[in-house]
């Protein structure tokens, strides 16, 4: 029989979890914004708050020391503690699983992979879309509830959360913490149906992928408009759950210091500049094209999955109203949206 947990039990459960895991959840800061942080950083927020940055930064931090060095000696600094991710959204789950696969492909990335080892994921379905006019997860088939890939999933049924179990690990967790859970025969079908209806923004994602799959399809005029309008702030890349590009540099004085990697992005002009000064992507539209083609074309060729999760953060974080859903509307509906 399915289990539920009363909402007022969540904090006590998480106290238990903290003994074993480095536990992260959406945490409301003093200014009211919500970010994925350690439990000790504040109050857990499981409503329809917009978590501005995807949880990718827990495993792929914006700034990460790769190793330290002093007098020619290298000291590896690679973290690994099992992470408990509580209350991530289905779109972000899809993003994480996508990034996992990428960092495993060909040559493995130890910094990322050591941080996901033993990871436990609890997703929470979205009753209301957190980025109201930007979420389009029903079009990308990634929400508002996850179908698989989680250990546990919470379904908000009023006073309590119904628990969906997605893995053996999840099952064991329920057994281990049995005192927090009670049996329930609540039916979630209606809740899920209403939640899907609440996602108002819909795009023809399949049509977009079909169009983009054709190498001859280059909507240059749209790319040019995006290239002209974009401020090159990088917001869309940094908040995107599947953007994983990084720069590497040394931060040192007198031979003592660290090698660091930090987030970088294909839309930025220095990204492809070579030592000779030659830059194959000087034109703005080519850089704009790179971003859309990467998510909607190249990713599908390599993994058969698109790199867009429908989270809508590119649009909600953009100061000039550019976003993946707008691009898709332009190419599929042949109308101007930007």
């Amino acid at each position: 029989m399915a289990k539920t947990i009363n909402k007022n039990q969540i904090n006590s459960l998480l106290k238990e979890v903290e003994k074993e895991y480095k536990a992260f959840a959406p945490i409301k800061g003093p200014e009211g914004d919500v970010l994925f942080k350690l439990l000790c950083d504040g109050e857990v927020a499981l409503g329809s708050e917009d978590v501005v940055i995807s949880p990718k930064d827990i495993f792929f931090p914006q700034w990460e020391t790769m190793f330290k060095f002093k007098d020619g000696q290298i000291e590896e600094t690679c973290e690994s503690a099992p992470v408990f991710l509580f209350g991530i959204r289905p779109c972000d789950l899809k993003g994480l699983l996508f990034a996992d696969e990428f960092f495993k492909r060909d040559i493995e990335d130890k910094y990322y992979l050591s941080k996901i080892e033993g990871r436990f994921i609890v997703t929470i379905g979205c009753i209301k879309p957190p980025r109201k006019d930007a979420c389009f997860c029903t079009s990308t088939d990634s929400g508002p509830f996850a179908k698989d890939g989680y250990d546990l999933q919470l379904v908000d049924v009023g006073e309590s959360y119904l628990i969906e179990v997605g893995s053996k690990k999840g099952e064991e967790f329920i057994a281990k913490h049995a005192k927090f859970f009670t049996d329930s025969d609540a039916d979630t079908a209606k809740t899920k149906e209403d939640a899907a209806k609440a996602v108002e923004l819909k795009v023809d994602f399949k049509k977009a992928l079909d169009l983009m799959a054709d190498d001859k399809f280059t909507p240059q005029e749209i790319y040019e408009r995006i290239g002209e309008r974009c401020l090159y702030c990088g917001g869309c890349l940094y908040t995107c759950p599947t953007c994983t590009c990084f720069n590497v540099f040394d931060n040192a004085t007198d031979g003592k210091g660290e090698r660091v990697r930090n987030w970088d992005g294909c839309i930025l002009s220095g990204y492809t500049r070579e030592a000779s000064g030659h830059n194959p992507r000087t034109e703005k539209w080519i850089r704009a094209a790179r971003r859309y083609e990467h998510k909607l074309k190249h990713d599908c060729k390599v993994t058969e999955k698109s790199g867009c999760t429908g989270c809508g953060r590119c649009l909600s974080s953009c100061p000039v109203n550019i976003g993946m859903s707008k691009f898709i509307q332009e190419i599929t509906e042949k109308r101007r949206t930007m």
Partner: peptide
Amino acid sequence: LERYMKCGIGKCGHCNVGE
């Protein structure tokens, strides 16, 4: 072919061309 490279192992993204 030469492209600006950082990681050399298919992760940082800098040398990407198509897929």
